[in-house]
Simulated assay, not measured.
Amino acid sequence: MIYELNHVGGRVRDLDASLEFYGGLGAEVVDRLFMSGSRVNRVHIQLATGLVELLHHEEPDEQATYGLNHVGFMTDDLDGDYARLMALGYDELSSPRVAGSGQGRLAFLSDPNGVRVELLQRSEEFRVPPITSGAVQAFSYVGVAAPDLDAAAEFYGTHLGMEQVADDTFRLGADAVKLLPSATTTIDHLGLAGTPSGNPVADPDGNRVAFA
């Protein structure tokens, strides 16, 4: 069973710059690991309740795309949930395998609008109690592209088991996804509650952060 929206993550150009940006919002580092096989630094930071996974490759790659590019969900039955979603016709990106970190197993698939979805089965828990000492008082949602809104609602609500808490918003565990028909990137922005308010800002890789 899929039981938690665990994180939003992606590749960063400059890990220190990203940590400085999110640290300025009150984020705390809750996990740090170097994956020697791929030579990737993986850092989980927490904003309020939400985990953000920063992946920094030591070897530069001119062809790489940077920024948030997937949402990760926890499951207690990776093989069963992945097979069920494949049988429903969703696109396979990476079949179940041992994670590069060695922490459990993972798989990737695509939602109906091309958003990369990671399924994770592991025993490690990186989340700490809600952090409310900085500018971010709540992690409201991850905004994901949903030009086909009905198909996205069926995927997240019916097939991932998320609770619909608004016309366009689905929650599982502490955090939520918001479906955005007009988004121009698969992960459009992070919706946060707190201060500062006003126009969205962006992290060093161009990921938008919107306060409400």
Rank of each mutant, 00 (worst) to 15 (best):
M1S: 14
M1D: 11
I2E: 01
Y3V: 08
S18T: 11
L19Y: 11
E20T: 14
G23Y: 14
D31H: 15
D31P: 00
R39V: 06
V43I: 15
Q46K: 06
L51N: 10
E53M: 11
H56K: 09
A64P: 06
V71G: 01
G72N: 06
T75I: 06
G80K: 09
A83F: 05
L85P: 04
Y90Q: 02
R97C: 03
R97D: 00
V98W: 05
G102L: 03
R105V: 02
S110Y: 01
D111I: 00
V115Q: 02
R116P: 00
E118H: 00
E118P: 02
R127H: 08
G134L: 10
S140Q: 14
V142Q: 03
V142I: 15
G143K: 12
G143L: 11
G143S: 15
Y156L: 02
H159L: 00
G161P: 05
A166D: 15
A166G: 08
T169Y: 06
T169D: 05
L172K: 08
L172M: 08
S182A: 14
S182E: 14
A183S: 12
T186H: 12
H189D: 09
G194L: 05
G194P: 08
P196D: 10
N199V: 04
N199C: 01
V201T: 13
A202Y: 05
D205S: 05
G206A: 03
R208W: 13
A212T: 11
